[in-house]
């Protein structure tokens, strides 16, 4: 009996220590979180104006962490890619540090609406529906949809679809919206991140993967045995930085910045630094938008 009593005391003591440890962690966590969302907590405006960002010395930019070569984390743990290259320049010209916030496709709008980030630079395609929720700046890239499939079963058309086959899409992307609206009978296999969608596609979960054509072309170039059977689908769209609805000071600054960057052909340099390895130089002029002006193609 005595041994049992001791065991109880020991168990109680352990629980106490654990509880203390947990509360200690909890309080330090909440402190840092408070600092980040201070702007969101008081007042209605969830966004930070240009001056507030400059004052704080840090800009929060939402980027992808798993979408090579646009926004990804390299083997050294550093953010890299076309969007990230641009984000770094943005921070530099603003004179502040850049705090990269990893986003997934489906929460890009939420992150802006709740003030978790100041700018989204995560391959964000401009659509009228999205423009009602956030403010887009001038575009910096062209995009449309594409469909990639295996070499032994190349899919070149979405008509006469076999209802047993599914297409992989990522939740919250334009590919998902487009297929739901235009091909409601095609079963969609939805994933919540690029990494898991890629993995599942390689495992043969579905016959095809629909996504931004830049992404599927990159996938086919990087992985053997895949062909982009449908290189462009739907309308030609653009990709632009997005800020919280109504954050005009930041929006205007970004727009002016994009014009200024156009004069030095910044996005061509960006392409050559980040995308050329994947796409070669053939796609340079068709993908890059300089100075916010889209050339008629």
């Amino acid at each position: 009996m005595k041994r049992k009593a001791w065991r109880n005391v020991l168990a109680l003591a352990l629980t106490g220590v654990l509880a203390l440890g947990l509360t200690a962690c909890g309080s330090s966590d909440s402190k840092t979180a408070d600092a980040g969302s201070a702007a969101a907590a008081d007042g209605k405006a969830v966004y930070r104006t240009l001056d507030e960002i400059k004052e704080s010395g840090t800009i929060n930019i939402g980027v992808f962490s798993d979408k090579n070569p646009f926004g990804y984390v390299d083997e050294n743990g550093e953010y890299q890619g076309y969007d990230v290259y641009y984000a770094r320049r943005l921070g530099e010209d603003l004179g502040v540090d850049v705090n990269f916030v990893s986003t997934e496709a489906a929460n890009r709008i939420e992150y802006l609406q709740t003030g978790k980030v100041d700018v989204i630079l995560a391959n964000f395609t401009v659509t009228p529906e999205r423009a009602e929720e956030v403010d887009f700046a001038s575009p910096y890239m062209n995009v449309s949809l594409g469909v990639v499939s295996k070499d032994d079963n190349v899919i070149t058309s979405l008509d006469n679809w076999n209802a047993d086959d599914s297409i992989i899409v990522i939740s919250g992307t334009t590919a998902e919206t487009y297929l739901i609206a235009n091909y409601p009978d095609i079963p969609l296999q939805k994933f919540d991140s690029y990494a898991t969608a890629k993995e599942a596609f390689e495992n043969g979960t579905s016959v095809a993967w629909a996504n931004d054509n830049t992404e599927v072309i990159a996938f086919a170039l990087q992985n053997e045995g895949y062909t982009v059977g449908i290189p462009s689908l739907g309308s030609a769209d653009t990709i632009a930085p997005a800020v919280s609805k109504g954050n005009t000071t930041l929006l205007d600054w970004i727009n002016d910045e994009i014009v200024a960057l156009g004069e030095e052909n910044f996005f061509h340099a960006d392409y050559e630094a980040t995308l050329a390895d994947t796409y070669g130089l053939d796609y340079e002029d068709s993908l890059v938008v300089e100075g916010g002006k889209v050339n008629a193609q």
């Binding site: 709008i109 009602e132 939740s171 919250g172 939805k190 898991t196």
Partner: peptide, 20 residues
């Protein structure tokens, strides 16, 4: 949702992503 099952959580996340 991590394995693409349309459970309650994923449905909510998906609808947020689609219609905000």
């Amino acid at each position: 949702s991590a394995i693409s099952l349309m459970d309650l959580m994923f449905t909510a996340k998906d609808l947020i992503g689609l219609y905000y």
